[in-house]
Amino acid sequence: MRVRTLAVALLAGGLALTACGKEGSPTDPGTAPSQQVESNVTVDGSATFEKMKGRGKVIVGVKEDQPGLGYKDPTTGKFTGFDIEIAKLVAAKLGFNSDQIEYKAIASQGREQALINGDVDYYVGTYTINAKRKDQVGFAGPYFTAGQDLLVKKDDNSITGPDTLKGKKVCSVTGSTPIQKVKTDGLTEPENIVELQNYSQCVTQLEQGAVDAVTTDDAILKGYASQDPSKFKVVGKPFSNEPYGIGLPKDDKALRDKVNDILDAAIKGGDWQSVYDATLGKSGSTAEKPVLDRY
């Protein structure tokens, strides 16, 4: 009997809570340039494009936990960042406005599967182009070039680059390229390698002092550092080359060529630069324009 009263009380409490929910965000996401939407776009022979058209909207796979790149505001559910703006740009040139985009947050481990299953039309989320992945999915781009770097605590001056990691605890995501590099290059002892499910978990561990450094692409790390500049800093000595591409279904060459054309125009025109300046560029760093790698 008491349990029932408790349940009712909980339920009532929950409802009361929902009724007076706060809206809006305590942080300002900033404004990004809006893209001009093309009309009457055709992509001959692209099954994916036909699917988007039939549906009347695009489903884009993105990251949700990388500030500055692909980030879902936990208070409003809105997506912001460089990858998001690139996704919007591509959608606009394919004839879809920003209300016709549905974002789907997909973590690194699930990317290939989501494209193979057709859960998403394309994927924009710190997706490094490499040969192994090309066996499973297609890539347009690169639209950005990142490099593996290190995130450390603000007051830590003992870590200055990959050669100073010996004896330090290093965190990255299970099965990711950066953790592979730490292992194969023997940057630190095997017992000091920490593998978690996503970079945010690594960052909380860094904050608690459970690890000394988080390693992945500098673009991702800069996002965390700019979110909390009083606690973290990026070492700033990239030690790899990570070209980010837009993931597409493997056999859709028509769409791949179209997206490459869109990126080409954006890079040569001013769109790419203005998107960069409105997102990643806010930290003050500059980036070189990428060179497309068509195949």
């Binding site: 605890k169 965190c171 017992e191 390698i193 909380t204 608690q208 002092g209 459970a210």
Partner: peptide, 22 residues
């Protein structure tokens, strides 16, 4: 793994290696 260290009863840094803490 994630919340307990925040209470600072035992600090993760006091373990010799990362593996030992986890």
């Amino acid at each position: 793994t994630f919340a307990f260290p925040l209470l600072e009863i035992v600090t993760p840094a006091s373990f010799g290696s990362a593996a030992a803490y986890y």
